[in-house]
Each structure stands twice: as C-alpha cells, then as structure tokens.
C-alpha cells in the first residue's frame, strides 16, 4: 500500500497548496497548447477580472515557451524538453512556478537576462524591452530575448529565480512569478 500512499501525499500537497494545473513531463508545442487551454478555462471559471486573467495567460505563454525553447532537448526527439510547471491560486492572485534543466553552455544569456531583470526597475525594463523591439534580433532558438523582461514587467517585478548546477554539464532553472489579482471595480 506504500505506493498508493505516495500518490495520495502528492495529491494532498497539491491540493493544500491550491495547485490548479500541474504538469511534469515532455514539453512540446502541443503539450503547451493543452496546458494553456486547461489553465485558461480554469482561470476564467474563477470569476477573476478579465485584465488579471489576460495577464496570467500572457505570462503563462512566455513561461512555458521558455521551457520549450531553452530546456535540455530529449535525445530521442529534439522538439521535446523536460520540465515542470505548476499554476497555483493564492490569496493575492496567482503564482506560476516552472523548472527546467538547461545546458551549462547555454546559460550565459540566461544569466545576463536574470542580472538585467534583477538590477533594473520597471521603467528601465520597459526601456530595455523597447530597445530589443527596435534593434534586437530573433535568436536561433526562435526567441526575441525579451521573454523574461516581458514577464517581469507584467508581474510588476514580483518574480524570483534560482539557477544552480546539477552536474558539470547541466543546471536547473527555477522561476516563480506572482500575479496580483486586481480588485474588483465597478465600472463607472
């Protein structure tokens, strides 16, 4: 019975923490589409302000695409990466947590982005975003290099990162983003 007990504990932990959507496994464009579909439906059913639900959706897309674009590819299918994703309901709004392995040879750009997001305020981040739109280029991974900046602006900088080596070739990147629910206001 020990095995089933483990599953129950996982289930209870997720429930206690108000996990809405949880995913661990292969990240492909198709799996992301499905996660977004479930997440959007769940958010909409909670009667949150349209503006909040749009914000959560926008951040979800960037966070999930980051795993797909920068995660370590599976040996048997280079369109697939491995990662973990959890969307929580919190008292303040929503929290998104993602985690993925990343090759150490690919972390310099990520480190630079983390440094930028940590050091700059919202106004400066908006300027950095504009600068990338004006003069940036699309990388060979298909990103505009503004995903993290975009998420930071949308979440009003309420986000934390953690990047640590798991072995000489690989690191693990954890990202937590809090989105504050806007107060219900009655339209004038």
């Amino acid at each position: 019975m020990k095995e089933s007990n483990t599953t129950y504990k996982m289930f209870e932990t997720m429930k206690q923490h108000k996990a809405m959507v949880t995913y661990h496994g292969e990240f492909t464009f198709e799996s992301i589409n499905n996660i977004l579909l479930y997440a959007r439906r769940d958010i909409q059913m909670r009667n949150v302000q349209k503006r909040t639900s749009r914000k959560v959706y926008a951040i979800l897309v960037e966070a999930l695409e980051n795993i797909l674009r920068h995660g370590v590819e599976k040996e048997y299918n280079t369109r697939t990466t491995d990662g973990v994703f959890i969307l929580y309901k919190t008292d303040q709004g929503f929290t998104i947590k993602t985690g993925n392995l990343i090759k150490n040879e690919d972390i310099s750009k990520l480190k630079a982005e983390i440094k930028l997001v940590s050091e700059k305020n919202i106004t400066q981040l908006k300027e950095a975003y504009r600068e990338q739109l004006r003069n940036g280029a699309i990388s060979n991974k298909g990103g505009a290099g503004i995903g993290l900046i975009d998420m930071a602006i949308k979440a009003n900088k309420d986000l934390t990162f953690n990047l640590f080596e798991t072995d000489p070739d690989t690191s693990f990147f954890e990202l937590t983003i809090n989105i504050h629910q806007e107060e219900d206001t009655i339209a004038a």
Binding site: A58, E62, L133, G142, G143, I146, G147, I149, D150
Partner: peptide, 12 residues
C-alpha cells in the same frame, strides 16, 4: 487579443 514577445518583434 494576445501576441507573445517573439511575435512582438516581427509585428514591430
């Protein structure tokens, strides 16, 4: 109604 950040670059 929604565009991701890499699309924003192309829209620009």
């Amino acid at each position: 109604d929604y565009f991701n950040s890499s699309s924003a670059k192309y829209i620009m």
